[in-house]
Write a protein that binds this DNA or RNA. Structure first.
Length: 273
DNA sequence: ACTATCCCCTGACGGC
DNA sequence: TGCCGTCAGGGGATAG
């Protein structure tokens, strides 16, 4: 499940290959993957030169030298791959972007077809605004996090998963961050003191930075643009480990649904207050 | 304001 | 072997 560290790893991979490349054409094998009208999408991309690759939360952006660009999201099982141009499309390949004079193409694969591409109608900031996304989780000022958590009484887990609060966390890293900070996922988010919110903000940055360093977690389908798996899954402390002993105190990790997501935490280390 | 539920879609897996 | 139900959970929509 690509979350911020996986999407950042993809962004870096694309950034090392795409800027300066001119799009020769686009092949779409499944129209549903494009939110914009598909023929317009192909027409708009052809002839454009990629100038920048950006990321905000779990969204990726290809920005064109001519202006505007494309936003896309990998959702659950999306993969953005750089492969030899002659490589045939398999049954899960939904979009291919071909480049002029290039031996490589950008391929979008997605087993579950949840991912989406759309044309930007303005800049990245306007897109972020229109989607209502909060600050990127890597650029979240502590005071801002405190203000946003204080504004609501729902659970910490629900708040951290909410992309309008901060953008980039998903189910895996939310559980890992709460474990590191010894906070219960069930705790009302407005109950955090300014000081605890500040240390939570620091933990968010630490966990994400470590995961990026390990090039993300490959739980199921995730691979980077070169097809390489991440290594951070080996460092996960609680995600997917309900019923196993807590790596800190040995208590059996609890499991259950919180905010509609399967959640695991240590009932002893992560108390409700 | 918030929660719960369903939807999109496919593959893995357990039970029978 | 194979059929069926369940689960994975990002984000959007909708009902309560």
């Amino acid at each position: 499940m690509p979350e911020l560290p996986e999407v950042e790893t993809v962004a870096r991979g694309l950034r090392s290959a795409l800027p300066g490349r001119r799009i020769a054409g686009v092949r779409c094998h499944f129209a549903g993957i494009v939110a914009t009208d598909e023929s317009r999408f192909r027409r708009e991309l052809r002839g454009k030169t990629v100038a920048h690759v950006r990321r905000h939360g779990k969204y990726l952006f290809l920005l064109f030298a001519e202006g505007r660009g494309v936003a896309f999201h990998l959702r659950m099982t999306g993969q953005a791959l750089l492969v030899p141009e002659q490589e045939p499309a398999d049954r899960h390949t939904h979009l291919e972007v071909l480049f002029q004079g290039g031996s490589q193409k950008l391929v979008y694969r997605d087993v579950r077809k949840f991912g989406r591409f759309e044309l930007l109608s303005a800049g990245v900031e306007e897109f972020v605004q229109a989607k209502g996304l909060g600050p990127d989780a890597l650029q979240m000022p502590a005071g801002e996090l405190y203000a946003r958590l204080r504004a609501s009484r729902r659970s910490l887990k629900a708040a951290l998963l909410d992309q309008r609060v901060l953008a980039g966390l998903g189910n895996i890293y939310t559980d890992e961050i709460l474990f590191r900070q010894r906070l219960s996922p069930l705790r009302p988010c407005s109950s955090l003191s300014r000081k605890k919110a500040a240390s939570l903000a620091a933990a968010i940055g630490e966990v994400l930075a470590e995961a990026i360093e390990a090039q993300g977690s490959s739980i199921s389908d995730y691979v980077d643009p070169r097809g390489q798996r991440g290594r951070f899954q080996a460092s996960l402390k609680v995600y997917g480990r309900a019923g196993e002993p807590c790596p800190r105190c040995g208590t059996t990790l609890a499991g259950g649904r919180v905010a509609g997501r399967s959640t695991s935490w240590c009932p002893r280390c992560q108390r409700n207050s």
